[in-house]
Amino acid sequence: MKILVIEDEPDMREVIIDSLEKEKFLVESAAGYHAAMDKVAAYDYDCILLDIMLPDGSGLSLLEEFKKLKKRDSVIIISAKNAVDDKVKGLNLGADDYLAKPFHLAELTARVKSVIRRKTAEGQMMLELNNITVDTGNRVVYVAGQELALNRKEFDILAYFMANKNRLINKTALAEHIWGDGTDQADDFEFIYSQIKNLRKKLKDADAAVEIQAVYGIGYKLAGR
């Protein structure tokens, strides 16, 4: 899986590349409008991360150029603006998703995997770890081939963990992903603990070969057992 990161800020670019490489993606980068244009014209990517504010041109016009080239690459817009009209414009121009800065790396990973899954052939919507399989298309979880009944939130949490398996997930990132932006001023995300507890119990009862580890003060990590 090949990913292109178009971002002018060197530190930002580096941190995104590091994170995506941990997920075994092949990552290339471009620092500006023209460099990005050259790369996109020459190669195909599974996913393009596009910063909307570039020093030598607008990310939105870059998006229009991609369309003219009849590229089918998935595009996720990364913007510091978080302005609704920019979001609408970007999605209308054919972007697949929109992520406002600052974001959590876990959220970026989940979004990237999600747009790639949507583009690939049907039946490839599976996230797997040991004896667990999560079918994100049909929203079903199998443990050793047996279906595991989860409620909506438990499923969302497990899918998020599976997309970020073996990675440490910040509890704020998890709360914002599951409960939405509305919770981002609650400041106190301890309430997600009870959901995690239920999920742990269900996984254990079904003999899943995974465990959700708590890292005190930071968050959680899903690892194989």
């Binding site: 800020e9 930002m12 590091d18 800065k101 600052p102 790396l105 876990a106």
Partner: peptide, 21 residues
């Protein structure tokens, strides 16, 4: 102003996230 503040914040948070791993 939002852009200028959000980007350093994003870099700081994301670098620390990588560090914790």
């Amino acid at each position: 102003a939002a852009h200028e503040l959000q980007t350093p914040l994003a870099i700081s948070i994301n670098k620390l996230e990588l560090l914790t791993e």
